[in-house]
Design a protein around this nucleic acid. Structure first.
Length: 259
DNA sequence: ATGGCAACCAATGGTTGA
């Protein structure tokens, strides 16, 4: 089965592009971030036509996440548990009822710039909350995937120029340390495990011809529980999405697991 | 010295993102 994550940067502004990409990558499960619409405004009909069930945690103007699945979705959770006071729609989770059911959490981790500051504090608090939730999920000893826009550049070789990103909230040592903590819990970063090549990216800024110059960063990730990691076959970054009409600044990253 | 690009809401400019 194939699980994808993709920050679409507004689903209303580029619905034809989104539908085209979804048809092409043909995944079982897709986690979408930055849908930038309220739950009721989600284009359910168009996406259901592609064979997907939709669970949506929307928000006006900013953020907003959705889970699309060709299998039944059960036990939908909106918002990161025990993150009281967080009014931003950044997390959605459900149990995907395929042959071997798998729990999937879709997340849009805060950017955190400028750092230091309130926004960076919010990012680190959010990461700590995600760590707690992952700890709880691991106790169940079942297959699960936490996929999304982590806004984390894990290694220097995951960006085109480390000097440019050194003091950025996406690459600061505290950010990388918080991401590393998730891995130390026992989660496997799918790209690193299945491929791991340097200078492969999932985001290119719209500005300054970043795509044409190859000035990207790898910030969209899938973290797998041990039971899911055992099933990992390959990972693909769907770069073609960045060449389409009205592209998102992110492209999908897809993990393929055995059924 | 600063914008660059894109989307949003609101309104012909300000905010946010990464």
């Amino acid at each position: 089965m194939k699980i994808a994550t993709w920050n679409v940067n507004s689903i209303k502004a580029r619905l034809p592009t989104v539908l085209e990409v979804l048809k092409t990558i043909d995944c079982d499960v897709v986690c979408l971030q930055e849908i930038k619409c309220e739950t009721d405004a989600f284009p359910y009909l168009e996406i259901e036509e592609l064979g997907y069930n939709c669970a949506v945690h929307g928000q006006k103007t900013y953020n907003g996440v959705a889970l699309l699945s060709k299998h039944q979705l059960e036990d939908v959770v909106k918002g990161l548990p025990d993150n009281e006071g967080d009014d931003q729609a950044r997390y959605i989770e459900a149990l995907v009822m395929c042959e071997h059911p798998i729990r999937v959490g879709g997340l849009y981790l805060p950017n955190g710039n400028p750092a230091p500051g309130d926004k960076y504090d919010y990012k680190l608090k959010w990461m700590d909350c995600l760590l707690s939730h992952a700890t709880e999920l691991l106790k169940q000893e079942d297959a699960f995937v936490l996929a999304g826009d982590y806004n984390v550049i894990p290694r220097d070789e995951d960006c085109w120029d480390p000097a440019v990103w050194r003091d950025d909230a996406l690459a600061l040592p505290s950010t990388r340390a918080a991401f590393q903590k998730l891995k130390w819990l026992g989660l496997t970063e799918a790209y690193e495990a299945a491929d791991g090549r340097a200078h492969e990216y999932t985001f290119w800024d719209y500005q300054g011809g970043a795509w044409q110059k190859g000035h990207g960063i790898r910030i969209d990730h899938l973290l797998l529980s041990p039971q899911a990691a055992d099933r990992l076959e390959k990972v693909e970054i769907f770069k073609k999405a960045r060449e389409m009409e009205k592209p998102s600044d992110h492209v999908p990253i897809i993990a393929e697991l055995t059924d």
